[in-house]
Design a protein around this nucleic acid. Structure first.
Length: 402
DNA sequence: TTTCCACAGGAATAAAGGGCGA
DNA sequence: TCGCCCTTTATTCCTGTGGAAA
């Protein structure tokens, strides 16, 4: 029996929410130029003019989303006491990666729950028609559609419709503007030429934070989130270095600071120290692997398992072909049908992107050709532990020392 | 300079599954 | 129930790639 008792001692946090993902600070640090451009591009909204389409480019965690939420909040405030009615639909395309899904989401955001449309069954153009009709029915004089992570969209049908809405008279009373937020700098080039040419746009490129700028961002959040003198001096540089390592990602750095604070609080200390930050870093990295592996389906897990086995026998870095062969014998042993080689290429690519695998391109020319080698990016035991936490456990245990 | 290796990955297509209206 | 239209996932086919060897 364990006696559970809650800790009554005062918290080291003053406002823990300031470290959450959706927190919008009163001031955005280190993005003055970008915000000034942003303001200029959206200024026509305040004059009840046709808004510009604005595209933001930059890597993850460089402040695109937080700047957008901040500027939209300011824009709402600026239009509050005027004749302008501002409508906004905000969609993250990461979990809605087709035009169809995004259009459905916009329609449902603008409808009462009892009138929502189903997520399947219509043609895309039908859903787009509903979308225009619904937006027109709203009281908005200006309507902004914000597509966060727009580069995740697998097709640009919706962008095409949005770009042509004005010329095709899709909307009768409402002025429409599009804000696209892209993590890919080359996104514009990837669009079809038709869409690109009809999508008159203003663009803002968000540069990557360097360690010093990250430190500034973290100091701002630290001051809001923690009580005075709680965070030791070395902790912030450690967190910013972590963010800088993750391609200047402020979100990751803030997440680490939050985790460090949580660990310190759970240990009942009154200070956040470097040891807490180090532990938080380990936990975050470990959590990423476990989450990454949990998200895989059974066949993908067998592919990872094949690589773990090869790693344990010091056979890595190993060619994709060898991995496939090992995967194939695993599935044969379990009396399962293996998937194709082509499938394994795509999966290995995904696993590299999830940082579960390390990939290296090799070229031995005429004698050996061009190929890639893979090895586990993490400790094989940690990966095994993650695999064991999934429903794969029963089956891999059947394999014994295979 | 050309040839050739061994893949990597794009394009087209199929299959399976789900919601809707007639 | 059937056909339509969508989704997701996988397969087949085939072209592109870059550097060592001829």
């Amino acid at each position: 029996m364990v006696d559970v008792e809650f800790d009554n001692s005062p918290s080291i946090f003053k406002n823990r929410e300031a470290l959450s993902d959706d927190y919008i600070p009163k001031e955005i640090v280190g993005r003055d130029e970008e915000l000034e451009k942003y303001r200029q591009y959206l200024q026509p909204v305040v004059y009840n003019e046709q808004p510009n389409n604005v595209f933001l480019y930059g890597k993850t965690g460089v402040g695109k989303t937080v700047s957008t939420k901040y500027i939209l909040k300011k824009l709402k405030e600026a239009t509050e006491d005027s004749e302008i009615e501002l409508g906004i639909n905000y969609i993250n395309c990461n979990d809605k990666d087709t035009s169809y899904r995004v259009a459905t989401d916009i329609v449902n955001q603008n409808r009462d729950p009892e009138n929502e449309i189903p997520t399947r069954g219509f043609s895309t153009s039908e859903v787009v028609d509903y979308m225009w009709k619904d937006i027109d029915k709203l009281d908005s004089t200006t309507h902004l559609i914000v597509l966060d992570e727009v580069d995740k969209l697998k097709d640009d049908k919706l962008l095409y419709h949005i770009s042509r809405a004005k010329s095709e008279g899709s909307l009768e009373d409402t002025k429409l503007g599009l804000i696209g937020i892209s993590n890919s700098l080359s996104y514009k080039q990837d669009l079809s030429s038709e869409t690109r040419s009809s999508l008159y746009e203003e663009s803002i490129t968000f540069s990557t934070y360097d360690a010093l700028e990250l430190e500034e961002v973290l100091r701002q959040r630290e001051n809001i989130a923690f009580k005075e003198n709680v965070v030791e001096n070395e902790v912030i540089p450690l967190c910013s270095a972590y963010g800088a390592k993750k391609s200047g990602d402020a979100r990751e750095a803030i997440k680490l600071l939050l985790k460090s604070g949580d660990i310190a609080r759970n240990k009942g200390t009154d200070k956040v120290r470097t040891e807490h930050a180090e532990e938080a870093k380990r936990e975050l990295e470990r959590g990423e692997i476990i989450e990454g592996i949990k998200s895989l389906n059974e066949q993908e897990k067998f592919l990872v398992y094949a690589i773990v086995l090869l790693e344990k026998r010091n056979r890595t870095p190993v060619k994709s072909k060898t991995i496939y062969e090992r995967y194939k014998s695993l599935t044969a042993k379990l009396d399962m049908d293996p998937l194709s080689v082509r499938w394994s290429h795509d999966r290995l690519d995904t696993l590299s992107m999830l940082d579960i695998l390390e990939v290296e391109e090799k070229n031995e020319g005429r004698s050996g050709g061009r190929y890639r080698t893979y090895s586990l990016a993490e400790d094989p035991d940690t990966v095994m532990e993650a695999l064991d936490k999934t429903d794969l456990e029963l089956k891999t245990s059947d394999l014994g020392s295979f």
